Computed example of a mutant assay.
Amino acid sequence: MTLPRISVSVKSAILHDDQVLLLSYDDHSGFHYNLPGGKAQEGESLRDAVRRKVQQETGLDVTVDRLLLVTEYVPATWNDEFGTVQKTQFTFLSHPLGGTTPRFQDPPDPIQIGFEWTPIGKLTEVYLLPRINEPLIAALHGRLSDPFIDRW
């Protein structure tokens, strides 16, 4: 039996003054926002992956708090809309240590446009990928009964 290839990634909902840091992108999916994060490396804990990816993508150092969401992407369910690799994403609440002014990575990501501190209440108005706006808001307010999201 061959084991399936599954990508494991982390995201960080960095919270500061009731605002969440979003990264803006323009790519094949069009203009959208993402939370900072990316793939975990083999042998790396998920919290360590959050700290590393946030530092790489924003220059910010963070403390990693609680797990907010687990999001699953099964390609066949979504007609391969976001690729052919199955994905599992763990989203953690984080808080900045020190500064709150993000910077672009070096070298810059060619599809990243900018950064935006977005009030929690305005998260429903942005195109966030994966599409976790409502569960993210509920999780940030401690009102999410099931942290498992099976829609991308």
Rank of each mutant, 00 (worst) to 15 (best):
L68I: 03
I149A: 04
P107C: 08
T71F: 00
G30E: 03
V74D: 06
P135T: 12
Q56D: 11
R47Y: 04
V8P: 01
L136P: 03
N79M: 15
S24L: 03
Y73C: 04
W117Q: 03
W117K: 06
L46S: 11
L136W: 02
P75W: 12
L23T: 00
Q19Y: 01
F31K: 13
T88L: 12
G37Q: 01
K53W: 09
T91N: 00
T58E: 06
A49W: 03
A40E: 00
Q56L: 13
L69E: 05
V50R: 04
T124S: 00
Y73F: 13
P108C: 14
T71Q: 06
P107N: 09
Q89E: 14
D18F: 06
Y73M: 06
K11L: 07
E81C: 09
Q56V: 12
L128R: 03
E125A: 03
Q56G: 02
G98E: 07
E72Y: 11
K53E: 14
F90Q: 07
D48T: 04
L35M: 12
D17R: 15
E42S: 13
E81S: 08
S12R: 01
I111T: 11
E116P: 08
T100M: 10
Q86S: 15
P75N: 02
G114D: 10
R66V: 09
L67K: 11
P110T: 13
G121C: 01
N79Q: 15
D18A: 12
P102K: 11
R151F: 11
L140A: 06
I14Q: 08
G59I: 08
G30Q: 03
L93T: 14
G121V: 13
S24M: 05
F31M: 11
P4L: 07
G83F: 10
S145P: 01
D80V: 14
